[in-house]
Design a protein around this nucleic acid. Structure first.
Length: 609
RNA sequence: GCCGACGUAGCUCAACAGGUAGAGCAAUGCUCUUGUAAAGCAUCGGUUAUGGGUUCAAGUCCCAUCGUCGGCUCCA
């Protein structure tokens, strides 16, 4: 969050406050743990952290901060903030800085890197070797730092700062290097802002899809089945299938051809595709069947490619668009699994388009158009695009530089033609080609990567794909990989949080709850339900012997869009008394009118009730 | 996988500094037949994640395993 949308975060007051708070926290830690070694302590979104190395304990294991330590650190930090010392900025020549930080190996490494001009303190590459380095001091605490900081410690309001949590964090983010102790904190202009932030965290917790998924009966994760392998409950399955049939229909209208492929494939397939070496760490051990090895598929593309290859193709067949809700399995480390958003088996709304080179731009644009249509229908208006390119220094990417250049140029050209705003991020590509990702910001302003479109010249080459052109010659097609939802699991998880479980009418697992007031109204209530069902509405009758108030409460908690209360008056008039989950009592209306109206809203995929 | 916290009935939580598990909701049964967010009574429900250990005694202490949560790394 920035003070002002027009100012980059790192130029804001908040950035200085947080950066300075990180220093004061480190000062408190040094006070209480004089032997500590300091790593880095930057501001981050909504707060700051600092990484520390506390050395080893008597068992040779890294020492860590206990919850009690945290309290002491926070208390000491508060004192230091109130003591109002100035932050003094100086610079030191590299050799003097090295001598000064001699007992601090992490600082020494940073200074050496700065001097060598390899990377800056944040690990970003710089070109200029530094002759001197920045130093900030408050009281006796001196830190290597580029700044900027606030003028005095009292510019940070002690009651607007809070330490949040500790965690292990690898030095320089490299799991092969030592694991440091990170303390996260948050800091704001004043107490009111801090409270608002803490409140926001509570809100986010309340709309956590894991919590709502349980409350609304959408999915369940059983340790016996396996972590990261969600079970879709009836209501979750209805929601997911509604999304799937929506996209299926949209794809049929756009000339996509549905296909279905198996969940495992011969290891040779992935060796040919090149997935095997690139995905080795995230794949399951192959299954031995007779003399052959099979893998749970980590991706659908090779299977679709084999469909393309199943017969000779002509330019008349292109673009050849294969689509499948294909379930893939990837090994994720146990610590990174989360509800529906990070799982080990998930279904991609996958499609592979085989196109002639001259069709690439047009098809790419059509795909982006489809993604925008899908997002628009969901009511997702706040999203941005990101062009992910390869990092030439990394060995994570296959193919020639020319291929990458062609792919990137094609995406840029198409995106420019569409007038799309996008950022370019190096190292965000797929191994086989550059991609354009659509990143959605939800109501809590959190960003999620959803749809993706990728241009691929590599796999057509690996598999020797070809088609006969108008000229009678063989030509090589280009592939577009795309998925508007990304994965059904993650998408539904995001949907749950974005809508706080109150899905748009067309997606609601139960669209209307019929609530008879007394037993004598049950029969008519069933008739109402039957009429709605006949009109394609998902409806439930609450026949329990509870009070009407209780039934309304239940439907309300389930976030059912419409509640239809049935009493003597309604029964007599052939009507329903309509109440919405927004607590709006619309009074009685003829059943036929309501059915017609509801049917229309569902068909229109309307956001409003 | 790594660091930390945690794991008590279907759910949310309780049980002083070890003394032998308790509440609300849910479920089930009965009574009430109800007009826009929780009717009343009763019943059922736990070898306190699992496996070891310390102790006269373990939900409480120790170890291991599994899982969850927050991070790190990675990612749709």
């Amino acid at each position: 969050m920035s003070d002002n949308g027009n100012i980059p975060y790192n130029e804001t007051d908040l950035y200085r406050i947080r950066h300075s708070a990180a220093h004061v926290m480190a000062e408190a830690v040094v006070d209480l743990f004089p032997e500590v070694r300091l790593a880095i302590g930057p501001p981050v979104e909504d707060g700051f952290y600092y990484d520390f190395d506390l050395g080893k304990d008597e068992h040779g294991k890294p020492r860590t901060f206990s919850p009690e330590d945290m309290e002491r650190i926070e208390a000491r930090m508060q004192e230091l903030l109130r003591e109002n010392a100035p932050f003094e900025h100086t610079t030191l020549p590299v050799d003097e800085a090295l001598a000064f930080f001699a007992g601090q190996p992490y600082k020494v490494e940073l200074i050496e890197d700065l001097a060598a001009g390899k990377v800056d303190e944040m690990g970003n590459p710089t070109t200029e070797p530094a002759a001197e380095v920045g130093i900030y001091r408050q009281r006796d605490f001196v830190d290597l730092c580029r700044g900027p900081h606030v003028a005095r410690t009292r510019d940070i309001k002690a009651n607007a700062v809070k330490l949040l949590r500790t965690s292990g964090a690898y030095w320089r983010g490299d799991e092969k290097r030592p694991q440091l102790q990170r303390i996260y904190g948050t800091a704001w202009h004043n107490k009111a802002e801090l409270d608002e932030y803490l409140h926001r965290l509570e809100e986010a917790k309340l709309r956590d899809h894991r919590r709502l998924g349980k409350q609304l009966g959408l999915f369940h994760i059983s340790p016996l089945v396996g972590s990261g392998l969600p079970l879709w409950l009836p209501k979750g399955a209805v929601l997911r299938e509604t999304l799937e049939s929506f996209l299926r229909q949209a794809q049929l209208e756009r000339g996509y051809l549905p296909v279905i492929t198996p969940h495992i494939g011969n290891l040779e397939l992935y060796k040919t595709s090149g997935h095997y070496p690139y995905y080795k760490d995230s794949q399951y051990t192959p299954i031995k069947v007779d003399e052959e090895e099979f893998m749970l598929k980590p991706m659908n593309c090779p299977h679709h490619i084999e469909i393309y290859r199943s017969e000779p193709r002509s330019y008349r067949d292109l673009p050849y668009r294969l689509a499948e809700f294909g379930t893939v399995y990837r090994y994720e480390k146990s610590g990174e699994l989360t509800g529906l958003t990070r799982v080990r088996g998930f279904t991609v709304d996958d499609s592979h388009l085989f196109v002639a080179p001259e069709q690439l731009e047009e098809e790419f644009i059509a795909v982006v158009d489809l993604i925008q249509y899908v997002f628009g229908t969901m009511g997702f208006n706040d999203f941005r695009a990101r062009l992910g390119t390869n990092d030439p220094a990394s060995d994570k990417y296959a193919g020639s530089p020319e291929m990458w250049a062609r792919g990137i140029a094609a995406i840029r050209h198409a995106a420019d033609k569409l007038g799309l705003n996008y950022t370019i991020e190096e190292g965000e590509a797929a191994f086989y080609g550059p991609k354009l990702d659509f990143i959605f910001r939800d109501v809590l302003k959190r960003e999620w990567q959803l749809g993706t479109v990728q241009v691929d010249f590599l796999l057509p080459e690996r598999f020797g794909l070809e088609y006969t052109g108008e000229d009678g010659q063989k030509h090589r097609p280009v592939m577009i990989h795309r998925a508007p939802f990304g994965s059904m699991e993650r998408f539904v998880g995001i949907l749950i949080e974005h809508f706080n479980g109150a899905f748009p009418l067309w997606l609601s697992p139960v669209q209307a709850a019929v609530i008879p007031i007394a037993d004598r109204h049950v029969e008519y209530a069933r008739h109402v339900a039957a009429e709605l069902k006949a009109a394609g509405v998902r409806v439930e009758v609450d026949e329990s012997s509870e009070r009407m108030n209780k039934k309304i409460r239940e439907a309300q908690l389930q976030k059912t869009p419409y509640m239809l209360v049935i009493g003597d008056k309604e029964m007599e008039a052939g009507a329903v008394a309509v109440r919405t989950r927004d607590n709006e009592d619309r009074g009685a209306m003829p059943l036929a009118d309501f059915v017609a109206q509801l049917k229309q809203s569902i068909a229109a995929r309307s956001m409003a009730l």
